[in-house]
Simulated scan of single mutants.
Amino acid sequence: MLRKALLTTALVALVSVPSVAQAQNKTVTLIQPNNGTMGFYGLHAARLLGYFEEEGINVKLLSGDTSVPYAAFLTNGDVDLAMLDGSETFQARNANIGAVTVYTVHNRAPEGIFVAKDSPLQSVTELKGKTIGLASDRDLAVVKVAMAHAGTNADGVNTVVVGDSGPTLANVFLKGTAAAFAGSGNDVAALLARGIELRDIMPESAKNSPANTYSMLGSRMAELKEPLCGFFRAYSKGVHVGLEDMEAVAALSRKGVPHEWESAAYGYRYLDTVKGLQVPPNPMKIGEVNVAAWQGVQKDMVMIGAVEKEGSLDAILSNDFMDCANDFDRAEVAAEVKAWMADPANAEFTKKPASQ
Rank of each mutant, 00 (worst) to 15 (best):
V105F: 01
K225C: 00
T350Y: 04
N208A: 13
E204W: 00
I132E: 02
E262W: 08
G267N: 02
V142A: 03
I31L: 06
A315V: 07
A264H: 13
P18E: 09
M246C: 00
H240G: 00
E54M: 12
V257R: 01
P353S: 01
Y266Q: 02
E260Q: 14
I201N: 09
G311F: 13
V102P: 03
V297F: 12
I196P: 00
M216P: 02
N34R: 10
L61E: 05
C324A: 10
L224V: 04
E223A: 15
S165E: 13
V291K: 14
V161A: 04
A150S: 08
E111G: 00
A135N: 03
E332W: 04
F114T: 03
S318Q: 09
D155F: 08
G39K: 08
K130Q: 14
T75Q: 12
G242R: 04
A21W: 06
S87I: 11
I57P: 13
Q22A: 13
M216H: 01
M303C: 00
R269F: 08
G183F: 05
V302F: 14
G305E: 06
K299W: 11
V143E: 01
N35L: 12
G218F: 15
S19Q: 11
K338N: 10
S219D: 12
M284Y: 13
A265V: 04
A265D: 10
Y270D: 09
L30R: 15
T177C: 03
A92D: 11
S219V: 10
A339R: 09
I316M: 15
K26C: 14
K352N: 10
D80C: 11
T8E: 11
S119M: 10
N346L: 11
M246F: 12
G42Q: 06
V20Q: 06
D327I: 06
N58T: 15
E88R: 04
W294Q: 05
G230C: 11
E336N: 12
R199Q: 10
A345R: 07
L140S: 09
A23Y: 10
G163N: 04
V20N: 05
D118A: 06
A135G: 12
G176E: 03
E332D: 14
N107R: 02
A331L: 12
A264W: 07
Y214A: 11
I57R: 07
S165W: 02
A45T: 10
E247G: 02
D300Y: 09
L61F: 06
M303Y: 03
D139G: 00
G86W: 10
A189D: 02
K128W: 07
V12Y: 11
L121Y: 14
E348I: 05
L43Y: 08
L11G: 03
S19A: 13
E348L: 02
L74N: 07
S318W: 11
G218L: 14
T273K: 05
A182E: 03
P110H: 00
G176Y: 14
F90I: 06
V12T: 15
M38Q: 09
A13V: 02
A45E: 03
